[in-house]
Simulated assay, not measured.
Amino acid sequence: MMVVIDEEPYLWLLLRDEAVLYLNVFCSHSAVDYFFLMALNEEECRSFDKVGRPYLNRLAQEIHHSASAVKGSRSRFKARGLTPMLGTKVQDAWSVWLAEQERQAR
């Protein structure tokens, strides 16, 4: 089951499903907004373990600026995009996480 484990509002969500970490990045290019989801590879997981959230902030900015989901993009991340396959699972996990955050705020 996919669950949200952390977020940087308006930048990224960090999710886990089994042993896999996923980064869902909010991207905005002019009039086009989208989310770009990818699984973190071993190197990215090690960097996250070592540096923490600042590493995810930098990685998310790199993904955003590479326009990874824009037609014609040459982003090195483009082939790693999982939003079409896992977007619904991310939305479900996000809804559960938001409800829990709201419950805790009361």
Rank of each mutant, 00 (worst) to 15 (best):
G87T: 00
E62T: 04
N24W: 08
L56H: 06
H64E: 07
R58Q: 15
Q104N: 12
P84V: 03
R76Q: 15
R74Y: 11
Q101R: 01
D17E: 13
R106G: 07
S28P: 01
V90L: 08
E100S: 06
P84I: 11
A69L: 04
I63K: 06
I63G: 08
Q91H: 08
H29W: 13
Y10H: 08
G72N: 02
E7D: 14
P84S: 03
F36N: 01
D49W: 07
L23W: 00
V90G: 02
W12S: 07
Q104D: 08
K50E: 14
V20G: 07
V4I: 05
H65Y: 06
E62G: 06
A19F: 10
L15G: 02
E102Y: 08
A105L: 07
L56R: 03
N57K: 15
H65W: 04
V25D: 02
A99F: 12
E43D: 09
K71R: 13
V70E: 11
A93T: 02
R106T: 12
V70Y: 14
G72R: 00
E7G: 06
V3K: 04
L14S: 08
R53S: 10
G87I: 03
A39F: 01
S95G: 09
W12P: 02
L11C: 08
Q91C: 09
R103V: 12
G52I: 01
V32N: 14
L14M: 05
Q101L: 11
N24T: 13
R80D: 09
R103W: 09
F35I: 05
H64V: 03
V4T: 05
V51I: 02
E62I: 03
M85N: 09
H64W: 10
A19R: 14
R103G: 07
H64F: 09
I5E: 02
R53N: 14
C27A: 04
M1G: 06
A79Q: 15
N24G: 09
P9E: 06
A79T: 15
G72F: 01
M1Y: 12
V20K: 03
G72C: 00
G52E: 06
L86S: 07
S75P: 04
L86F: 02
Y10V: 06
R76K: 15
Q104C: 11
V96D: 11
E44T: 00
M38C: 03
R80G: 05
W97S: 04
E44K: 03
V32K: 13
L37G: 00
K71W: 14
L21Q: 09
A31N: 14
S73Q: 06
Y55E: 01
E43V: 00
D33E: 15
R76S: 15
V20L: 12
R76D: 10
R46Q: 13
S73C: 02
Y10M: 12
V90H: 05
P9D: 13
P84Y: 10
E18G: 09
L82S: 10
Y55P: 05
L21F: 02
S73K: 05
A67I: 07
G81P: 11
E7C: 04
Q91A: 12
L11K: 03
A105K: 12
R16F: 00
F26D: 08
D6N: 10
D6E: 02
R16A: 03
V90M: 09
G87F: 07
P54C: 04
R80M: 01
N24A: 15
S73E: 04
K89H: 11
